[in-house]
Design a protein around this nucleic acid. Structure first.
Lengths: 138, 138
DNA sequence: CAGATTGGTCAAGCTGCTTGACTAAATAGT
DNA sequence: ACTATTTAGTCAAGCAGCTTGACCAATCTG
């Protein structure tokens, strides 16, 4: 219960701050998409795998993010079937805002814990967590 | 990310074991309902508040649990408007199975950590978590 | 270079939730 | 005591996000 409550508070806290920063048309789920798109972009199929949904659902979310100005669909450099989804400047701005929000939420917690206990928690969590699985949607 | 992954792994692990125990017609969301109904039962409105959804949605879930044989609707002892939702014997059996599953998932983790670090993690999480908020549904 | 695979879209449908409107029982205000 | 408001619950309609199924075009394989 503590674990779920903490995870929930973290996501809500980040989301709230991102919204307060002017990105009111995004939900936490979009953040998970940004994580995959941020480094070098991704195809719809790759995004779908990352989010754990069908490619149709991922394509739908991509449509929404394009419509809202966070993502661009550009031709894939090496595969004429595929299209590369990349962040626009606004998409990058949102990603930066989310990073800052995450730090702002976690910082007081890290301060209160001290570095030794923090790393203990970190290793403890990594033992329980399975790498690939991020998205709940229960 | 670790926190989300751990929470997700925990929920999935419990759900998987509960399903393996014969309760294949339940989702993790139902577990959150059982938590509120288990001690003494609850009304639809109380269940809705606990789950963070509208009373209509809670009523709908209650219907489903009644239909599947986990919950009973009985007249409320002190309020003729209300109906008290209580667990059936099957509901209690499922609750016990879930408790055992939770222990089974967490035990190896607790063993690996040791009691001192475990309580450190516990207090750390309780500092971040907000009591009421449990349900993500992002 | 035919056959199978892969990336993406279109279309239809479902599930879990929401808002809105309403009844009946309980409570509050004179 | 009696009206007015609140509260518990249901019925109905609608929506958002996801699914399955079918399909086309580009790519890979033998």
């Amino acid at each position: 219960m503590l674990l779920l409550g903490a995870a929930s508070a973290l996501v809500d806290g980040i989301n709230e701050r991102v919204r307060a920063g002017g990105f009111t048309d995004l939900r936490p789920a979009h953040g998970f998409a940004f994580v995959r798109l941020a480094p070098d972009g991704a195809t719809v199929v790759e995004l779908a795998e990352h989010l754990g949904v069908t490619k149709q659902a991922a394509s739908q979310m991509a449509d929404e993010l394009v419509r809202k100005g966070y993502v661009e669909r550009r031709p894939h450099p090496s595969d004429a079937r595929a299209r590369l989804l990349t962040l626009t400047e606004r998409g990058w701005a949102c990603t930066r805002a989310a990073d800052e929000a995450a730090i702002a939420v976690l910082q007081p917690w890290a301060d209160a814990l001290g570095p030794a206990q923090l790393s203990a928690v970190r290793t403890a969590l990594s033992r329980l967590a399975v790498p690939g699985r991020i998205r709940p949607t229960w």
